[in-house]
Amino acid sequence: MRRLHTPLVATLVLCSLFAAACSDDNGAPTTTAPGTTGDVVVLAASSLTEAFTEIGDAFTAANPEANVTFSFAGSSDLVTQISEGAPADVFVSADDATMAKITDAALNATDPVVMARNSFAIIVEQGNPKGIATVADLADPDLVVVLCAGSVPCGKGAVAILANAAVTVTPKSLEDKVKGVVTKVTAGEADAGIVFVTDVQAAGSAAEGVDIPADVNVISNYPIVVTKDAQHADAAQAFIDFVTSADGQAILATYGFLAP
């Protein structure tokens, strides 16, 4: 008896060890009718948090049989999760370079479709107490400037913008996702950071944005794909169709995203 139990216990322990991987299989049935039923797991760039949460609600309202589960994180973190086999049906990155890591590794089932675009702005505290007006102002050594790490899209954008403006900035911290920069500014621990225009809008009254002129600014594409190992590929495609539909685009526009 004891011998029989050992593998069972081991399995349970190992299952809890890899809880994320195991639990997903217990979710929605894998063989569903085609269309919009099932649980779609969407891994999306951190900057899409607010817009996609609303799109998810609208999608499930239009398709009561379907359910959407979001996981928002830095795009490159999500790529690592997908390559390590994290359950995912849909992936959206905040730039083409990060999506290329997925397509290069053939982890996508559909070709990337650009569903939105985004540009950058300087985020400052409400009322702009430091009077920041241009990218060049960020070079002031007395300012506490926080940027994204170079590994994530918002960090690549920031580096490109600073290069375009020929400005050298010494940031105090390099955050692993764009929301890290936003919270440092809204918490009052940083004077300024470079984030997506949509992040400034999402921060609401806690922060405000300073425009970056078009000749210096960078436009980032948001490509979306169904992943190779999608458990609910049909529902995943339905979700993408919804995002790119007029309804989905209207929601993205209200959060400040540019049309593709």
């Binding site: 490159s76 105090k172 955050e175 692993d176």
Partner: peptide, 20 residues
């Protein structure tokens, strides 16, 4: 925060390296 040399410790470096 996270900045090389001042606040970026090994666990943070491991986490960031995991992405790149």
């Amino acid at each position: 925060g996270s900045y090389p040399g001042t606040t970026q410790t090994m666990p943070i470096a491991v986490y960031l390296a995991r992405e790149t």
